[in-house]
Amino acid sequence: MTTTAITDQGSATGARAGATTGNAPPARRLRRGPGTGGGPAGERTPRWQIYLPLGLYLFFTLVPFYWMLLFALRPAGSTSLVPWPATAAHFDKVWNDLGFAVFFRNSLLVGVASLVMTTAVALAGGYALARFRFRGRNGFMLALLCSQFIPGALMLVPLFEIFRELALVNSLWSVVIAETVFQLPLSLILISGFIRNVPAELEEAAWVDGCGRFRAFCAVVLPLLRPGLIAVGSFAFVHSWNHFLFALMFLSSQEKYTIPVGLNYTIGAESVDLGALAAGGVVAAVPVVIVFAFIQKWLIAGFSAGAVKG
């Protein structure tokens, strides 16, 4: 019994000494479980499982655009699946004969005016919602959110009556005002979220340095809101550029039509000029593609800023 006790004590002492001097046996390496390292037991996910779904999605996304370019560039009556030899006759027809130069100018005016008005009003209202606490603030935010569930078609008749009393029917300003009103709720919610991500201590430091509230906002907060303003403004422009219902309802003369309404009138009662219709679609799509190509960096940054509270 004594010998056994001494042996056990010696073993325990040796184990403690080994642990102290770093000679302890290495810990067993844990095996990766399912779902780590890209697959079961740490295996990498095969590339085809990533590229196949992405390729299918890209195919179904780009085929309609290719089909539109095909009809716009190939000669009338051709059945070739390749737009060669290419022709610009359809673009010349829609731009000069069908008046798409005027439609393009009208759409540009409506889009830019809606962008400026929506961004300016949303910036002022979003700052008030983000920085001030007042009675009914939560209810107001809830009302803004619920207004997004109201279809714009339900408001066409009341809006038409209002614009008729204001002598704005068949004026581009009627479309601009309607677009601004219907885009403001979501823009207010987004801008207020962006402003809340800017620490109020930055403004307070500017106040201490002698700046007023407006000057501190312009010097400190506004530069940090650039991604959010670009995100809100780009959606306001694209929505106004593509919207068909308001322009169809409030504009009655051809010199006031926007591109969506002009495209609608290229469809005749007996036949459809597919080449002209496709060329008009290309004219309508190119500005939007160019805008998103230039602002995609700030657009992604704006979404990221609105997702995480700083």
Rank of each mutant, 00 (worst) to 15 (best):
I6R: 15
G22Q: 01
A27D: 02
R28I: 06
G33S: 13
G39V: 11
E43T: 12
T45W: 11
I50Q: 14
P53Q: 14
G55R: 03
F59W: 13
M68N: 14
L73E: 09
T79P: 00
S80C: 01
V82N: 07
N96R: 15
F103C: 05
F103E: 03
R105W: 10
V110Q: 05
A113F: 12
L115T: 12
M117I: 15
A122T: 09
A130Q: 12
R131K: 11
A143Y: 11
L144W: 10
C146V: 15
S147K: 04
F149H: 08
M155I: 13
M155T: 15
R164D: 15
N170E: 04
V175H: 03
I177T: 00
L188N: 01
R196S: 12
C211Y: 09
R213D: 10
F214L: 15
R215K: 10
A216R: 02
F217E: 03
C218I: 04
V220H: 03
S234K: 05
S234N: 02
A236H: 00
F237R: 03
S240P: 00
N242I: 02
F244C: 08
F244T: 01
L245K: 02
A247F: 01
L251Q: 01
L251N: 00
Q254N: 11
I259V: 14
P260T: 06
G262L: 03
I267M: 09
G268I: 08
A278I: 06
G280I: 00
G281Y: 02
A285N: 07
V289T: 10
V291L: 15
F292S: 05
A293I: 07
A293M: 13
F294P: 01
W298A: 12
A305R: 13
